[in-house]
């Protein structure tokens, strides 16, 4: 079997693995029978596994997500797909009030093992309601695991871990990553509860923390920085909730500099949470310069190309910020 994948086909491989090996897995959501709704990440699944297990649905985000939660309580391992997170907001009750709370509310007896796949799909002048990256909202909710794969390997392996987890998981993938390529080893199942942030590039001058597409930007910036003689350690969060800062703290204690990149908004965002978690764990003399965060500006996504270019963080912006931080 060909072991070369891109981020999209890696998820497709995860779906195929899960549907082939776990009869309790089914997939429900809008656009699943369409060749283009979810990129190359679910192509022909309904032909291979049948439309009873790969269910394209009415325009009902709320009921479909609630139905997935109910099916999970009844012993299934459903994956509900939201091709854009913006539309998933109709399903907030099922995600926040129901899936995330049922274990705790019922004394650990209920296990709503649902995976909710929310896709960030932005750019291309799509504007404010086709662009949002809302990971911070969901990472705020106890009981909901929030996963953001940044690598081809994680796109496949964290999706499998998410679906096999007995807990509700929000799996957020990003269309800007779908053409990322890599060679993958055979599938090994991992326990999502043991997944931790991962160091993708070792370095000693500063620590850069990111997740999802922001990790991609960080890695590209890291290459440029190496050319400038700056050695960046790059840590990918992978799982935003529950959040384990130990690896980041240990890194910052060595590098004395911290830059955090997040594809969401600044206020009450993931970047702020990462910085706070590090600051409260290191000594007051640890930082040589105050930490920096790179986020979206606190404004809805624009449509016009010119404004989009000003809106989304770039590799050059990161390099400039690092230069400010280091000099």
């Amino acid at each position: 079997m060909d072991n070369k994948y891109n981020y999209g086909t890696a998820m497709l491989a995860a779906f195929e693995y899960l549907l082939a090996n776990y009869p309790e897995v089914f997939v429900i959501g809008q656009g699943l029978w369409s060749p283009w709704y979810v990129g190359n990440s679910m192509t022909n699944l309904e032909k291979k596994f049948g439309t009873a297990r790969v269910i394209d649905t009415p325009v009902s985000e709320s009921a479909c997500t609630g139905a997935a939660v109910g099916a999970a309580l009844a012993g299934m391992k459903p994956i509900v797909v939201h091709p854009r997170i913006d539309f998933m907001l109709y399903a907030m009750d099922a995600i926040v009030n129901q899936a995330a709370k049922w274990s705790h509310m019922f004394g650990g007896q209920a296990s709503p093992a649902v995976t909710i796949r929310g896709i960030i799909n932005r750019g291309g002048e799509q504007g404010a309601q086709h662009s949002q990256a809302l990971q911070a909202w969901f990472a705020h909710i106890p009981g909901l695991r929030v996963v953001m794969p940044a690598t081809v390997a994680d796109a496949r392996d964290l999706l499998i871990s998410s679906v096999l987890s007995p807990d509700p998981v929000l799996f957020i993938d990003d269309r800007w990553l779908y053409d990322l390529e890599d060679t993958l080893p055979p599938i090994v199942e991992h326990n999502l509860a043991l997944a931790r942030p991962q160091c993708l590039q070792a370095g000693h001058d500063l620590t850069i923390v990111a997740s999802g597409y922001s990790t991609r930007l960080a890695l590209n910036a890291g290459q440029k920085l190496t050319g400038q003689g700056i050695s960046a350690e790059i840590i990918d969060l992978r799982v935003l909730n529950p959040f384990y800062p130990e690896l980041i703290v240990e890194s910052v204690e060595r590098t004395k500099h911290l830059l955090v990149i997040d594809g969401g908004w600044r206020t009450c965002g993931v970047a702020g949470e990462v910085i706070a978690s590090v600051v409260e764990r290191v000594s007051t003399s640890c930082f040589k310069k105050p930490p920096i965060r790179i986020t979206l500006p606190d404004a809805p996504a624009p449509t016009s190309k010119v404004l989009e270019n000003a809106y989304y963080p770039t590799v050059d912006l990161i390099v400039n910020c690092v230069n400010k931080l280091m000099h």
């Binding site: 609630g66 099916a71 009844a74 012993g75 299934m76 129901q98």
Partner: peptide
């Protein structure tokens, strides 16, 4: 009894999913 919660209508779609699960099973 698979759960009662006070969000009005909060479990209606869950019951649909539990039924769907029974059908798939």
């Amino acid at each position: 009894f698979y759960g009662a919660v006070p969000i009005v209508s909060g479990t209606v779609s869950l019951a649909v999913g539990a039924g769907l699960a029974a059908k798939l099973q």
